[in-house]
Each structure stands twice: as structure tokens, then as C-alpha cells.
Design a protein around this nucleic acid. Structure first.
Length: 263
DNA sequence: ACATTGACCTGAGAGC
DNA sequence: TGCTCTCAGGTCAATG
């Protein structure tokens, strides 16, 4: 559950549950997920501090500590956060636990250990270090900026949308949704787009991300008119009722409506 | 430049 | 039930 809307939902969850509480202890059960921070370094940096704020860039969640660097979390394909009372049942796949003085802990759950736990001096330092493009939901990426970005890029559209150094936050699922709503095929070339199509794409991107964030990225609450809930071969297109087709694009499975998205 | 593939991890679901 | 195979919302490095 880890594209921009999901990570934004996690960010808000941290804001709602975990700010301003002293951290008494930290357990990390997945050394390979640590980037640029050993288990002991992470522990000493966090212990005795508290979470004072949050930020997000693309699929990265950053948590500001009361002293020192920011905590950085990346959710990979399966990560999620959960705030628990200590002593309650230990959830499955708990790889990280940050214990607060109030007897609760914020747990990082990753079914697959694809993800990242680290530290960064600031959000902008992380963006630099990871070479991330602008956040896909940043208002600064307006139509003019988006048009400029696309004109500097060759190749197919879907890989561009998923390229975190081009624009940060969009992955396989949401790129399918954006392309579906814009009525454009994933293999369409960035160069060959009409002005209309670029505008439709930009509109779809803003719209999809904003609605998904509003619905807390919960698939059950997303509009019925979306492709996302029917992202499977042979399902019915919510627009034309034709069959949804699975193709290969950007090395991943992409789902399209051939009728509504050309080709 | 950009695309593709395999590796990294661990499980779920399908088909036999 | 148990096995085997394929696939999964991510990213990186190597290769074409």
C-alpha cells in the first residue's frame, strides 16, 4: 500500500497518534532495511527525543525529531504503520517498534522486507540524496511546469510517471489510474502528446491523487468510476463496459481499457 | 537517454 | 492437504 496517497495517509496517521511523546526505546528487526544507519545509531538518535512533525516527498515519509536528524521511512511494496498499546498482541511482520513513554508504540510492519528505515538531515537533504523529482502532488507542479517537464523527456509515458527522479510519488497502480482517466495509452510517447492530452493528463493526476488522499487510499472507498477497483484481466471498464486488458509496460503489469485508451 | 531484466524479500492465490 | 508456479502497489544495478 505504498504510493503517494498511501504514504500521505501514513503521514497523517503519525500526526494523529504519535507526536510529542518521549521515545523510550526502539527495536529494529530488519538490519537490511537500515540505510546509512546502524541499529545502534538509530536507537541512540531516537531515544529520549520525540516526534515533532512530519513531511512527505513522493513515497518517502519523514518524521522530525525534537533533536537531531529526521527519521526516514520508505514502505516498499508492503509497508504500513500501526500505533499499538504495549503488551497487546504483537502483530505479524513487525520490523520496527518505537516505544513511547505512555505505554504505546508505533510499529512499522513490512510483510516483505523491501523498504527503508533511515535518517536524513532534512527533507530537502533526502530529496537531494535520493535524486527525487518534484512531488507529484506539489501545487508547484502546475500545468506549465508539467508541460515543461514532459517536453524534456523522451520515451513512453508510463515509465516516465513511475520514474521517481522525474516525478515522485506515482507507482504502478496510480499510473494506470491516471492514464485511464486521461484516456491515454501507457505506451504513448511523451513527445507525441497534444496540448489537450497533456492537460488531461495533468488534470487526471491532480484529481486522482487528491481523491485518493481524501479517501485515505482505501480501495473500498474509491469511486466506482475508477479503474483501480477493477484492475484485473477481463473486468468491465467502468466507462464503456468493454473488457479490461492486461499488458506489459515498464516491465510491470499494466491494466488498460483498449477502447478508452486507444490501441 | 531510456527500456528491460534480474535481484532483493516473503507471501498469497491458482492450478494440479 | 500439499506442492509448484506465478504474481505482487518498490528500487537498484547491470545490460542493451
Amino acid at each position: 500500500m505504498p504510493e503517494l496517497p498511501d504514504v500521505e495517509t501514513e503521514r497523517r496517521y503519525v500526526e494523529a497518534t504519535s507526536l510529542h511523546q518521549r521515545i523510550d526505546d526502539v527495536d529494529v528487526d530488519a538490519p537490511r532495511m537500515l540505510h546509512g544507519a546502524s541499529r545502534s545509531k538509530l536507537r541512540t538518535r531516537l531515544k529520549g527525543t520525540s516526534f515533532e512533525g512530519t513531511a512527505r516527498h513522493g513515497k518517502f515519509l519523514l518524521i522530525e525529531l525534537s533533536a537531531g536528524p529526521w527519521l526516514v521511512l520508505h514502505f516498499g511494496m508492503t509497508g504500513t504503520l500501526k500505533y499499538f498499546k504495549d503488551g497487546a498482541e504483537t502483530p505479524k511482520y513487525e520490523r520496527l517498534a518505537m516505544h513511547f513513554a505512555n505505554g504505546y508504540h508505533l510499529a512499522g510492519l513490512w510483510r516483505r522486507r523491501l523498504g527503508e528505515i533511515g535518517l536524513a538531515d532534512s527533507p530537502s537533504a533526502l530529496v537531494r540524496q535520493k535524486g527525487l523529482g518534484p512531488d507529484a502532488f506539489d501545487p508547484g507542479v502546475d500545468l506549465a511546469a508539467f508541460t515543461r517537464m514532459l517536453s524534456a523527456r523522451r520515451g513512453a509515458l508510463k515509465p516516465a510517471l513511475m520514474d521517481q527522479s522525474f516525478i515522485a510519488g506515482i507507482g504502478n497502480i496510480y499510473s494506470d489510474e491516471i492514464l485511464f482517466q486521461a484516456g491515454i495509452h501507457p505506451d504513448a510517447k511523451t513527445k507525441g502528446l497534444s496540448e489537450e492530452q497533456v492537460a488531461a493528463l495533468h488534470r487526471a493526476m491532480r484529481q486522482v491523487l487528491s481523491v485518493a488522499i481524501e479517501r485515505q487510499a482505501d480501495p473500498d472507498r474509491l469511486p466506482k468510476s475508477w479503474l483501480l477497483p477493477r484492475r484485473q484481466q477481463g473486468a468491465q471498464c467502468p466507462r464503456c463496459h468493454g473488457p479490461i486488458k492486461r499488458i506489459r509496460a515498464a516491465g510491470r503489469s499494466a491494466y488498460i481499457c483498449p477502447q478508452c485508451q486507444g490501441q
